[in-house]
């Protein structure tokens, strides 16, 4: 479960964001829609505590993230938050498999090859585990990053424009997989996007 309360942030005195309060229960999905420049990515980074809010709080489970030290934040994020970025980025020198295992490694969890292989089979890139990530298509790469986000079975999955660079087929597939995976691990799914194609798929929506 993720909750935010009176979040504000400013990059400069005349560019100030005030965000509506959010609440997303376990196994639920929340779509945050907004045009460019409305602070979508900023909000997502605040929820993941990649940015510190000026005021307000973000609570995941029973933990208020704003009360953690930077080191604790990093550890907490690694264990409880999975992030899917707009463009799928990976450690390019490592294979797909190692990129998945890295999620375990960086969260100090045992490296679960079996889970990585199951996820890969399920998300349809089981044949590509030994390849480098740049050898995969955009759609495949985005599915790898979904698998990476759920490797540690986090309580919250945050997705930043996960479909903006995909065609309709891949878009539908990626969103379906995101929802399916987050429900399977009982996570709250929050998707930030300007992609109008997603409007009809999510029932919970917030406009910025």
């Amino acid at each position: 479960m993720l909750q935010s309360h009176q979040l504000t942030f400013s990059y400069s005195p005349n560019k100030r964001f005030t965000f509506p309060d959010l609440r997303c229960n376990d196994r639920e999905a929340l779509l945050i829609l907004g045009k460019s420049g409305k602070g979508k990515t900023t909000l997502l980074h605040l929820l993941a505590l990649l940015l510190r809010p000026e005021s307000g709080s973000v609570t995941i489970g029973n933990t208020d993230l704003t009360k953690l030290t930077p080191a604790e934040t990093a550890g907490f994020r690694a264990a409880h938050v999975g992030i899917v970025f707009q463009k799928p980025h990976f450690v390019s020198s490592l294979s797909v498999m190692d990129n998945l295992l890295m999620a375990n490694y960086l969260a100090d969890k045992p490296q679960d090859r079996t889970r990585a292989r199951q996820l890969a089979d399920h998300l349809g890139f089981g044949d590509h585990l030994g390849k480098k990530t740049h050898q995969l298509s955009q759609g495949e790469q985005q599915r790898v990053s979904i698998a990476r986000a759920v490797m540690n079975a986090p309580g919250v999955i945050l997705a930043d424009e996960p479909t903006s660079s995909l065609d309709d087929d891949n878009c539908a597939r990626v969103v379906a997989l995101l929802r399916e995976q987050s429900e399977e691990i009982g996570a709250s799914l929050i998707v930030v996007t300007h992609d109008q194609r997603l409007k009809d798929i999510f029932s919970n929506q917030v406009f910025l």
């Binding site: 080191a71 992030i83 990976f90 450690v91 999620a103 960086l106 969260a107």
Partner: peptide, 15 residues
């Protein structure tokens, strides 16, 4: 070239 990679790893919990 690897700035993004580093930021990514940091966001994934690397110190």
């Amino acid at each position: 070239e690897r700035r993004y990679e580093m930021a990514l790893m940091l966001s994934m919990g690397a110190g």
